[in-house]
Every structure is written in C-alpha cells, then in structure tokens.
Amino acid sequence: MLKIGVLASGRGTNLQSIIDGIESGEITAEIELVISDNEDAGALERAKKHNIDSCYINPADYETDQDFEQEMVNNLKEKDVELVVMAGFMRLLSPYFIRQYRHQIMNIHPSLLPAFKGLHAQKQALDYGVKVAGCTVHFADEGMDTGPIILQAAVEVKWDDTEERLAARILEQEHKIYPEAIRLYAEDKLEVIDGKVKIKE
C-alpha cells in the first residue's frame, strides 16, 4: 500500500480531502506522517483527529534551509514514505529535497499552470481579466509551480468575482482533483515522459 507523507502549513482542507478519499476506500494508501512548519496549522489538528502521526518542525531551529529540509527528509524516510504531498505548504523546496523524491512530490496550485505562478494566483487571474481560472496538480521540481502537470480543473470567472469567491470555487475543485491524482499514482497509472505526464489506461 502506498505510503504518503504530507507537508502542510495551513488549515489542511486539501489534507482533509485526501484523508476522506482514503477512508472511503477511493484511494489505496495510508498517510504515514503530516509535517508542518507552522505550530498552529489546522492540518496538525486534522491529523490528530484521524490518529495520523504528525510533527511540527520549526525552520528557525536550523542554521540553513537545507538543515531544516534534512530533518524533514529524515522523518519521511523513517516512515518509508513513497509519495510526498504538498497540501498548502508555503515553502519552496530546494533542489536537495527534490533530488530525494524526484517525481514523487505532488503539489497543487490554484491556477491553470503555467499561468499565474506564485502567491495570490486568484488575484492575478482577476487582475488579468481571464474568463477561466482553475487549479493544477503537478509533480514538483526545482522551480516555483513548475514541473509536469498531472491534472487540471477549470472554473468560470464571473464578472463580479472577488478574490475570496473565486478562491472558494477553485478550492472545491482542488478537493476533487488532488485525491484523484493520488489515486492514479497509487494505482501506478502516472508516467513522466519528456517532462509530460502520461495517464495510463
């Protein structure tokens, strides 16, 4: 059974959607560990509620980012984690971390990548005046919100949308496609060929 490690900094709603997918039997996997860089992250509470091992690792306790990441990697390897899932983890992973888990790190971003990378993607979309926004699950690589795209979902942008309203509708789609991407990975249906993800039948 696929062993998952989740990195989260915030409320943990995407973590919850993955937990729900596992508990319903939709995803054949187990979350072995939830790691947060935020002591007050809602994700840690969610993990506790579902009896999932979790830990807070304070980046300020480490001299360098790599020392901090080494501690995360040590914890993940201790649990034999095979897939690292970033669920609202607000730090850019270094090439060192990526090398440990090449094509084994998933991220979700609230835009139709490659458009609107980085922070405040929903505001970027509204400011640009796009008619369609959405979200993307991709394998993380050394760049910010780059890496091979696994799944995307589109959301219509309404004329009177605010950043908050658009973000809420995009989040609903995130909660659908993230568990689906993990299910495909667990069933060995994802293959990266020349930087693109092929979904096998």
Results as ranks from 00 to 15, higher is better:
Asp127Gln: 15
Lys117Phe: 12
Leu151Cys: 06
Met72Trp: 01
Met144Gly: 09
Lys48Gln: 13
Ala115Leu: 14
Gln66Ser: 08
Tyr62Phe: 13
His50Asp: 15
Pro114Tyr: 04
Phe89Met: 02
Phe139Glu: 10
Ala47Leu: 03
Ile57Lys: 10
Leu44Asn: 04
Ser111Val: 12
Gln66Leu: 13
Val132Met: 12
Lys131Gln: 13
His120Gln: 11
Asp65Thr: 13
Ala121Asn: 10
Arg46Ser: 13
Ile150Val: 09
Tyr128Met: 11
Asn51Trp: 11
Asp141Ile: 05
Thr136Ala: 06
Pro95Gly: 15
Pro95Ala: 14
Ser54Gln: 14
Lys49Tyr: 10
Ala60Ser: 15
Val130Pro: 06
Glu69Gln: 07
Phe97Asp: 00
Tyr56Gly: 06
Pro95Cys: 13
Asp61Gln: 11
Gly88Phe: 06
Ile150Gly: 04
His120Ile: 12
Ile52Cys: 00
Phe139Pro: 08
Lys48Asn: 10
Ser94Tyr: 06
Leu44Tyr: 11
Leu119Ile: 03
His103Ile: 08
Leu93Phe: 03
Leu112Lys: 00
Arg99Asp: 13
Ile150Pro: 04
Ala60Asp: 13
Glu71Phe: 08
Met106Glu: 05
Leu113Met: 03
Arg99Glu: 14
Asp80Cys: 04
Val84Thr: 02
Ala121Trp: 01
Gln152Pro: 00
Lys123Pro: 06
Asn58Leu: 14
Lys48Ile: 12
Asp65Asn: 15
Ala121Phe: 08
Pro148Arg: 02
Met72Arg: 02
Phe139Ala: 09
Gln70Pro: 00
Tyr128Ala: 10
Asn58Tyr: 13
Ala115Gly: 12
Gln104His: 12
Phe89Gly: 00
Gln104Thr: 07
Met90Ala: 10
Leu112Gly: 01
Gly134Asn: 05
Phe68Ile: 04
Ala121Cys: 10
Ile57Asp: 07
Asp53Leu: 14
Glu63Leu: 11
